[in-house]
């Protein structure tokens, strides 16, 4: 019956709007691509740094367990810079998109998204610091991937629902990495680099392509 279909459509519209309006939808795919590119660049740089060490007869998989202090500092610095650069670039592209759409970036949805991703991330950060202190450097890479995956799944309720799948992929990588200690750099390059770029490109193609 015609009018019945009409009412069903109306209810579907309402449901969709309730869903969409409680999410931060300005998140740009380009943010994902930029963050992924940062992570890949840092991975390559780190790879070469470690390879140069290897030339002196050190195996980088061993280094995962017994890093000298100077190397530890160097790696931490690279990690920190990468994280900040990725965050700034991601913010930049999302900000640009929100300007174009005329949506305020600091709305309720943005605040909710930020809070719900920050909580698992901060806890993850504390765990990683403790692992480092305890000399369990080999567990750092999988721990980062696992907490980041959880943060994404938690955050996906407040932004584009596809973020959830990126989260699941990070979790799978993190879990595999738990049994492949020492290959953290490769898992990071895949998780933070390639997955971000693939996700970002898909989101850009789906929502922003004109």
């Amino acid at each position: 019956m015609d009018s019945n279909q009409e009412h069903l459509d109306a209810l579907r519209d309402i449901k969709q709007m309730m869903e969409r309006s409680s999410r931060f939808i300005s998140l740009s795919g380009l943010s994902g691509i930029a963050a992924g590119a940062c992570a890949l660049a840092a991975s390559v740089y780190t790879w070469r740094l470690l390879a140069s060490r290897k030339a002196y007869g050190e195996d980088y998989r061993q280094l995962a367990f017994e890093t000298g202090d100077s190397l530890k500092m160097q790696l931490l610095t690279i990690g920190g810079i990468t994280f900040i650069a990725a965050l700034l670039l991601a913010f930049f592209f999302t900000y640009t998109r929100s300007l174009k759409n005329g949506t305020p970036i600091w709305g309720i949805t943005a605040r909710r998204l930020l809070w719900n991703t920050m909580v698992p991330m901060i806890v993850g950060g504390i765990v990683v610091l403790r692992l480092l202190q305890a000399g369990l450097a080999g567990l750092i890479a999988p721990t980062c991937l696992l907490f980041y995956g959880l943060a994404l799944i938690n955050g996906s309720k407040y932004t584009l629902p596809e973020v959830r799948w990126l989260g699941y992929c990070q979790l799978i990588l993190g879990i595999i990495n738990l049994w492949m200690i020492g290959y953290g750099l490769i898992f990071w390059a895949i998780g933070f680099g390639i997955l971000h770029i693939v996700y970002g490109a898909m989101m850009w193609w789906r929502y922003e392509r004109q």
Partner: peptide
């Protein structure tokens, strides 16, 4: 109207929504 339905749905689940947010949503 679809627009009014959209406005009401968005407002029902959010404490407040700005004009621009509504414009983007609908």
């Amino acid at each position: 109207s679809r627009v009014r339905l959209g406005i009401m749905s968005a407002l029902l689940v959010n404490a407040e929504v700005s004009f621009n947010e509504l414009k983007e949503l609908i």
